[in-house]
Write a protein that binds this DNA or RNA. Structure first.
Length: 708
RNA sequence: GGGCGUUUAGCUCAGUGGUUAGAGCGCUCCGUUCACAUCGGAGAGGUCGCAGGUCCGAUCCCUGCAACGCCCACCA
């Protein structure tokens, strides 16, 4: 053996050997394997390069798959790649901006073609990066979220939802991003704390409060709580003439319990077109709604002299006009509140009422809740079950329309007369089925979660594929904990709705990987660690084990280069243990593969072998319980501080000065302990263990060795 | 405004109802003769956040408090 373990030369060679062996594919695994074990890889976004989060998920999933494979399961790990709709389009728009171009000046087909080329080249790059991390996934089954069959099936689901009455086209209030010119779901927005002035205006006999005077032009309803005695003299529906921004108007009093009597004056005017609360009030009382702001954030003609102004510039001028008219009562500076912003550009969301497709969530959420209540899915750690349940109990109808080109087209026709829509997968609808009016093609695309929510079904060839019958439901879904509400619920209810069963039996959540001081890695802080730099320097095995030890499910971890270096020393240690044993192989040793079983019987009574059996039991139990950190730590401790420090040291005497028979026995013991250790370490540190294994057992491969 | 998590050695973190509470890194001293200086040996360093409670016994279970962090949220 070489004096040093050269990970840079070894890793690509070993990976190629694995890939050629066909062992990543359950169909070509040796032996009879009746029991399947399946993991669907969360498809990485094909719009960037690998970060440590990817390295973590590859490591955890690969541990589970390798463990299952060694235990004789029909192990399948399906890789994928995500076109990542809005995410990717934004990445590409930034590229365009750098080149001084804009998507709004491009033909949609042109833009789509460019993003596709960009995504496909990134996809190949990422696949190779995942290979370099040692992922033993079945590349022959890889899926891309824009594969034709995925597109077709996603569109069929759309129609099925429609036929089942779970889908409707509605004029409803949506989150609109002025920069990106698309609507966004609630999970694509964030709240940001801000301080703004809060104005009180005279509105006829009322004083109303607002932080957004620029939306107040169309306000002709003043809402108070039905139990508010201050306003008891006003009746629901009562008309009041009053002077407002651009002249006299007729206002109507509305009584609604959504009003918080203790806030402001307890009276507010509403702008249903641009505020979700106001929209709901207007819906309840069947009030008029009209737009004040256009999709570019500019005031419409209803604003009179302010028409065409951006809302930011208009605000101060409107306040000034109201002050001049004597309608400004007072201003509270520093009013603290949270505003909804676009999660990508952090610009304030301007709610708009738009015609979009919505999925009725209640029936689907109930399916998910029932399955979880029946314990059909285990959450690890289990506290995430509560989070999941909370989300499913508080769903709003899901807006699946996106005004971007990069995605799966919504196969529908929209009536130009009545605005209604109808699914049309065959492009056969020529007139509105409702009113007979002319129709146009829907140019929107699906929210990316609409298709990725069906991912486990898609990759297994739902509904009639062979894999679907064998491998669905899958065993484990391993993902980052922030997907507990973005992605996991959608997979669960689509699985139940379409296939009648949960998509996976266990969800394992990993946490964030932070920098050495527990701070979140971010480009702006400059503390981002590139996992491939680390594997180049210290080896993939070192990075993998350093991501596992001390990192229990659901918790965040801190990762430093020092730590990885420390675990690199561990692979060196393993290498040197092997080298020492190999150097002490007696000439003509009987410890060949053929005699090994016989020797094992002889060795079984040896206390060191018994100790190893105990360890194996422990490690097995920990892996089965998803306690990879404990399994890894115990192995580390055993190999270094027992096998190397104690057993080998104790055997040195016999090896040096013993009789041939003693030397033989000593060697066989050490070799058995080494090989036993390699097996258990293999899921965690696949490269160095495979390399050493093949030195001792030429012609065989550790990846398919039986676990026990 | 809700909910959750964390608080253990200088740093980053594991862990356990029961003798001396662990790991990596860092630190101190010693050691290069034949597995390994990418190392070995020896060692320093902890009132396990605070206050109560349950228990024969609590770092671990319960209650309260504090600090930090995260998630959610239609008070205009």
């Amino acid at each position: 053996m070489e004096t040093r373990y050269d990970h840079e030369k070894t890793e690509p060679r070993i990976y190629a050997q694995w890939e050629q062996s066909g062992y990543f594919n359950p169909d070509t695994l040796p032996g009879d394997r009746p029991e399947p074990f399946t993991i669907v890889m969360p498809p990485p976004n094909s719009n960037g390069s690998l970060h440590v989060g990817h390295a973590l998920f590859v490591t955890l999933q690969d541990i589970m798959i390798r463990f299952a494979r060694m235990r004789g399961k029909k192990a399948l790990w399906i890789p994928g790649a995500d076109h990542a709709g809005f995410e990717t389009q934004i990445v590409y728009e930034r590229e365009l901006e750098k080149q001084g171009r804009s998507r709004f000046a491009m033909k949609p087909e042109e833009l789509y073609k460019e993003i596709l080329a960009f995504t496909l080249s990134n996809k190949t790059y990422m696949e190779n990066q995942i290979r370099s991390l040692g992922a033993s996934c079945d590349w022959s089954r890889e899926k891309f979220t824009l594969d034709p069959d995925v597109v077709r099936k996603t569109q069929q689901t759309f129609r099925r939802l429609y036929d089942d009455g779970l889908l409707y086209r509605g004029k409803r209030i949506v989150n609109w991003c002025v920069k990106h010119q698309t609507s966004l779901s609630d999970v694509e927005t964030e709240f940001k704390d801000r301080k703004d002035p809060f104005y009180y205006f005279t509105y006829g006999p009322f004083t109303i409060g607002t932080a957004r005077p620029e939306t107040k032009f169309g306000d002709k309803y003043v809402v108070v709580h039905p139990a508010d005695e201050r306003y008891a003299q006003f009746k629901d529906g009562q008309k009041i003439e009053l002077e407002w921004i651009n002249g006299p108007i007729t206002a109507t009093v509305v009584k609604d319990e959504a009003i918080d009597m203790s806030f402001g004056t307890g009276a507010m005017t509403i702008t249903p077109w641009h505020d979700p609360v106001d929209f709901e009030i207007a819906e309840r009382h069947k009030l008029d709604k009209e737009p004040i702001i256009d999709l570019h954030g500019k005031l419409l003609p209803i604003a009179g002299e302010f028409a065409g102004m951006k809302i930011d510039e208009a605000r101060a001028k409107i306040v000034e006009k109201l002050r001049a008219k004597g309608l400004l009562v007072k201003t509270d500076e520093d009013y603290e509140h949270a505003v909804r912003v676009c999660y990508k550009c952090e610009r304030v969301i301007e709610p708009q009422v738009l015609d979009q497709w919505f999925v009725k969530m209640k029936p689907l959420a109930d399916l998910a809740l029932k399955a979880v209540a029946e314990k059909k899915i285990a959450f690890i750690p289990d506290r995430f079950e509560k989070v999941f349940t909370y989300w499913m109990e508080h769903t709003l109808d899901w807006n699946i329309s996106r005004q971007i080109v990069w995605g799966i087209p919504i196969p529908a026709k929209i009536c130009e007369r009545c605005g209604d829509g109808v699914p049309d997968l065959e492009d056969a609808v020529t007139a509105c089925p409702k009113c007979g009016g002319p129709v146009r093609k829907d140019t929107d695309t699906f929210d990316t979660w609409f298709s990725s929510g069906q991912w486990p079904l898609m990759v297994l060839g739902y509904p009639d594929g062979r894999d679907f019958k064998t491998f669905y439901p899958t065993d484990v879904m391993e993902t980052a904990y922030d997907l507990v509400f973005k992605w996991i619920p959608r997979m669960v209810f689509f699985g139940l709705y379409l296939a009648g069963d949960v998509p996976f039996r266990t969800v394992y959540f990993h946490g964030l990987v932070n920098d050495a001081h527990g701070k979140k890695m971010s480009k702006s802080k400059g503390n981002v660690m590139n996992p491939l730099d680390m594997t180049a320097k210290y080896g993939t095995d070192a990075l993998r084990i350093s991501l596992v030890v001390g990192n229990p499910a659901g918790s965040e971890m801190s990762l430093s280069e020092d730590r990885i270096r420390g675990y690199r020393n561990f692979s060196t240690k393993i290498w040197n243990i092997a080298r020492f044993i190999e150097m002490n192989r007696p000439a003509g040793s009987t410890a060949t593969k053929e005699s090994f079983k016989k020797d094992e019987t002889m060795l079984a009574k040896n206390p060191h072998m018994q100790r190893m059996a105990e360890l194996r039991k422990d490690v097995t139990a920990h892996i089965e319980a998803f306690e990879f950190h404990l399994a890894a730590e115990k192995l580390y401790h055993y190999v270094w501080h027992e096998l190397a420090d104690k057993v080998i040291e104790a055997e040195k005497g016999r090896l040096r000065d013993g009789s041939p028979a003693e030397r033989e026995e000593s060697y066989e013991l050490l070799e058995a302990l080494l090989l036993g250790s390699l097996k258990m370490l293999h899921p965690f540190m696949p490269f160095v263990t495979e390399e050493i294994w093949q030195i001792f057992r030429p012609g065989t491969m550790l990846i398919v060795e039986p676990w026990e």
